[in-house]
Design a protein around this nucleic acid. Structure first.
Lengths: 183, 183
DNA sequence: TTGACAAACGGGGTCCCCCTCCGTATTCAA
DNA sequence: TTGAATACGGAGGGGGACCCCGTTTGTCAA
């Protein structure tokens, strides 16, 4: 599950520098941060950046990979409450996290575009976790019939992308969406 | 309520050409359509485009102004059903419309940025309509206490922007969000 | 240790985009 | 008709994405 082909040490070093620089600049400028500037800050040529990350999506995936993995791990550690509540709680956590990290929502919504197998990972990790929660909730009849994993992920990401930098509003609106608009 | 200062006839003509070209290219390329290309297709210099529309937002507002106005007018013509249902129905209509017209959701989410008084209009028109519907519903206790006009508009637009070109999914997810995820 | 080869690098070029300056052309009111 | 006010657009500065290809740097077998 590691790299398909091990990188040379200089390649590995540059890759890490690029991701670190990207994390910083994406936090400052959002998903549209300049790739040239990221390369400059990482101290590499722009060609090197493009060789390591064939698309902006791929770079964003790499930036957020660890954080998303932690978020997913925490889902497994949830106490086994009522399934729908458990699902709702995790979606809320996801939304707050995504809205807090500029660029992440965009990366998750963008979907696979020029990503190599090991790059597509954030999205898949999240989908896997959600699949489990959704299955558990719907097997007990606790979930609306028409609600798919895709729908819920899209909903959470849409709300997050519209509320970057405002996780509190994002959480409020997600709660509204999970409970419905009636009293 | 017309133009603050009447344009010269050549100015008016060019403005219309620009909006027409923009409508076409935004439909094709989305909200990020090239302004240069729009100017080229309209047969004007790019300076002319920028003079008429100081920002991308302003141009998008102009492109969608008429359509949004019609949508708002239709809200008034709704039969007076149960208020929450009326609100839900119109939000659904809004979402489908927005998801159908590439770039519109982006324009509505972007908010006022460098818009002059007569440019800010789509957003305000929608907000006014929603305010009425929300007030009517909540005065009869048919609306969740924490739900504001801003929340609902944001929710509808977020779903639409995440589902450009897929109005059916947009509608499904909005319905889910309005009724909640439980059965 | 060495040297040949694969792997990775990055300067610099191409093409596109946004935006503005300013000299020129058009309109309109008197 | 005419001259001021208004609008036009070519051209250029500044920046970004992406790629070509000659050069440098690791790696590994001998």
């Amino acid at each position: 599950m590691a790299q398909v082909k091990r990188l040379r040490v200089d390649g590995q070093r540059n890759r890490e520098r690029i991701v670190a620089a990207a994390a910083e600049l994406v936090a400052r400028d959002g998903a549209q941060a300049s790739l040239e500037e990221i390369a400059r800050q990482a101290g590499v040529g722009s060609a090197t950046l493009h060789r390591h990350f064939p698309s902006r999506q791929a770079l964003l995936e790499a930036v957020f990979r660890d954080g998303v993995a932690q978020l997913c791990a925490r889902a497994a550690a949830q106490p086994g409450k009522e399934p729908a509540a458990e699902l709702a709680a995790w979606l809320e956590e996801l939304t707050v996290y995504t809205a807090t990290h500029r660029g992440l929502a965009f990366a998750l919504l963008g979907g696979p575009a020029g990503l190599t197998a090991e790059d597509i990972c954030c999205t898949d990790m999240l989908r896997d976790v959600l699949n489990v929660l959704v299955a558990r909730a719907s097997s007990r009849g606790a979930l609306h019939a028409g609600a798919t994993t895709e729908d819920l992920m899209m909903l959470a990401n849409a709300i997050a992308v519209a509320n970057e930098k405002d996780p509190l509003t994002a959480r409020r609106v997600l709660r509204l969406a999970l409970t419905g608009i009636r009293p």
